[in-house]
Simulated assay, not measured.
Amino acid sequence: MTSQIQPSDQDLWAAIAAGDEIAFGRLFDRYARAVYNHAFRLTGSWTLAEDVTQSTFLVAWRRRGEAGLVDGLALPWLLVVATNTTRTEWRSARRWLAALRRLPPEREADVDPASDVAARLDDERQMTKILAVVRRLPRAEREAVALCLWSGVPYGEAATVLGISEGAVRSRVSRARARLARMVTDNKEDAR
């Protein structure tokens, strides 16, 4: 039985930069789930997370010659691309919703949702509540939370991607945790 050594992200990226589609497929297989979960945490929507994941890897392929790996890893760069793609999606969604509001309302069709649809909706409702609280954080703290807490990117790699020191990332995460704790406590007290 032979064990197969997995190529490093740097090796894969060198092949991808040369146009190797198989290497790109391996990188996709390696990180698609992490990017998808990151996108869900940013959007609160499984469907939008799928779109963001697809767009992220499309950007990765198009920018394969200019991508910046962090300590030889592609994931931090992919997560930043996903974050930027999410921002673009939100801007597009706001414009689309504004256009829809100008249309007359339609009649609702009879729908028989399946159990997985109900579970997805519950996930989205829960994530919407979480996002409502997290969006109240300053942008710098939101980015640190999304990268380090939600997606598990180490502080050092997040610092490199964000272009700040590791201490600044740790500080942002710490401040975000403290603010979130206060916000949750305040919301519980308001609910009483």
Rank of each mutant, 00 (worst) to 15 (best):
A178D: 15
R95C: 00
S55C: 05
R192H: 09
R107M: 04
S151T: 13
E89D: 00
C148E: 03
D20I: 07
R62D: 13
T2N: 11
V80R: 14
Y31G: 00
L137A: 09
A60T: 04
H38K: 04
P105Q: 06
V184Q: 08
R30P: 01
L121G: 05
K188S: 07
E157H: 14
L12H: 02
A181W: 01
G167R: 15
V134S: 00
F40M: 10
L162G: 11
V70Q: 07
L79Y: 07
T47K: 04
A23T: 10
A181F: 01
W96D: 12
V153T: 15
A93P: 01
A159D: 09
A67E: 02
R107E: 12
V145E: 01
D51C: 01
R177G: 01
L73K: 13
V161A: 15
V81F: 02
V133S: 06
A176R: 02
F28V: 11
T83D: 09
S115E: 14
P7E: 11
R172S: 07
V161L: 10
P154A: 06
A93G: 03
P154S: 05
S151P: 09
T47Y: 03
E141H: 14
S165A: 10
D20E: 12
S45V: 08
D110K: 10
E108Q: 12
R63M: 06
L69H: 13
L137P: 08
A14F: 01
W96M: 08
R87H: 11
P104V: 05
T88A: 11
A82F: 05
A74Y: 07
E50R: 08
Q4H: 10
L131P: 02
L48C: 01
L73T: 03
F57H: 05
P105S: 08
R120K: 08
V35E: 04
A15K: 13
V111Y: 12
V133D: 03
G156C: 02
M183H: 11
P104T: 04
R192N: 06
F28S: 00
T86G: 08
C148H: 14
A176T: 08
V134P: 00
G25A: 08
L69T: 14
A178M: 08
Q10D: 09
R192L: 09
T43G: 07
Q10C: 05
T88V: 07
A181M: 03
